[in-house]
């Protein structure tokens, strides 16, 4: 979780993360998953949602109300004020409607 644990590389300001999308979040963004370099300025889940929202029209449409989006870090539900830490897979989806 700490900076000292990060492996030094040529682009130390960002690291690749696998983003996976479901239901209408997936439909609006237009892809089911993608690898993305997340800048180090993105600390919390909330930061990530706002950063992603500015990446294009589909993202804007999917994330226009960030508060309703649910997020999972490596398959675990996460609150919006949690740090994304070293999560390798981040899932973004609407409130769940199973059962």
């Amino acid at each position: 979780m700490t900076i000292s644990e990060q492996v030094p590389n040529t682009s130390s300001t960002s690291r690749p993360v696998k983003l996976v999308y479901f239901a209408w979040v997936r439909e609006r963004i237009g892809v089911a998953q993608e690898e993305m370099a997340i800048p180090s300025s993105v600390v919390t889940v909330r930061d990530l949602l706002h950063w992603l929202k500015d990446r294009g029209e589909g993202y804007e449409q999917a994330l226009q109300v960030p508060d309703v989006i649910r997020v999972a870090l490596d398959h675990e539900h996460a609150d919006h004020d949690e740090p994304i830490g070293n999560a390798r897979e981040i899932g973004l989806f609407p409130p769940m409607t199973g059962g």
Binding site: F22, A23, A72, H77, G91, F93, P94, P95, M96, T97, G98, G99
Partner: peptide, 14 residues
Amino acid sequence: LMDFLKSKAPFWKK
């Protein structure tokens, strides 16, 4: 189980 499954298990219905 059922109450939590509806709100915490990642499923979506179309």
